[in-house]
Design a protein around this nucleic acid. Structure first.
Lengths: 149, 149
DNA sequence: CATCGGGGTTCCCTGAAGGAACTTAAGCTG
DNA sequence: CAGCTTAAGTTCCTTCAGGGAACCCCGATG
């Protein structure tokens, strides 16, 4: 947890950071997305301290991003993405696109995405939800919304 | 800085987190995007400690996301987004879309985006860069890429 | 009944975030 | 031209979060 809480700010970016802004949280989400659903799998894959992993999983479950449910008679649990969490994967895909473009270097991207609809190796692009045209940093005006303070 | 460095991992998400994963960094980026370009403006708007702001700005400049340049004969500097940084705004727009949808509550979104191309209040949607069809969590297969280890 | 293995919890240590005071280098002001 | 002002940091101290390792619990298994 950051020392300062961002959740109270009138800003969806700050609020989102309150949910997945802590160190490790996006990587935990990525791992759960690709099928590493159990505590020890996550701990081994990430090399995160068990204490911090406990805290992060607890927070993500509390925020409704992950779901913790038993997979055995024994006290064993799996973490899965909720609908809310699944939509957060959008964020990971955009991070991947940016990292692939600016940080991958000579070696190229470590992971490729094949799109089901067209079968091609591709990445995401941002479009306007309304008209379908590209929508990036310079393509919008910002205006106060109903939740502004 | 997180204790653990993510940059060495063969993962574009982890590498991207090494650039803007530290607390405050996305909010600094947002502020610079909307036109708060100076140290004191950022400090006042965010309520961040001056020490941490100095560290963050230094890191973002070092990573090529921001550009620091003088705007006066006096030792005064402005921070601006580079091309690399401007593309990171995509990430902010996706965070905004998710936060608007899942965290805004009754009050509604604090900020609205009006899209230049269509003039409508809208948000971003993720499309395949190749075929233009929607591209979300369930729409892709992951495959090892050339930079895999 | 001892062992195993998954899923944590506890403890201590270090280092990063917060906060307030101090510094520096022009300009401006009377 | 001494003193004030302002932007942009820097320094120092305190507190709390992250890392790491050891330990615990609990049902199943041999």
């Amino acid at each position: 947890m950051q020392r300062t809480q961002f959740g109270e700010m009138a800003c969806s970016i700050a609020r989102t950071l309150d949910v997945i802004g802590e160190p490790w949280s996006p990587l935990i989400l990525r791992d759960v997305w690709v099928g590493l659903n159990r505590f020890d799998q996550l701990q081994a894959d990430l090399g995160i301290s068990r204490k911090v992993l406990t805290e992060r999983l607890g927070h993500l479950v509390e925020q409704g991003v992950l779901d913790r449910h038993p997979y055995d008679n024994r006290p064993r649990y799996e973490y899965r993405l909720t609908a809310k969490g699944t939509e957060l994967v959008d964020l990971l895909m955009v991070m991947t696109a940016w990292g692939d473009r600016w940080l991958a270097g000579e070696a190229g991207p470590p992971v490729l995405y094949r799109h089901h609809a067209c079968g091609e190796i591709s990445g995401v692009d941002l479009r306007c939800a309304h008209c379908g045209e590209p929508m990036h940093a310079g393509d919008v005006d910002l205006m106060p919304g109903p939740g502004a303070r």
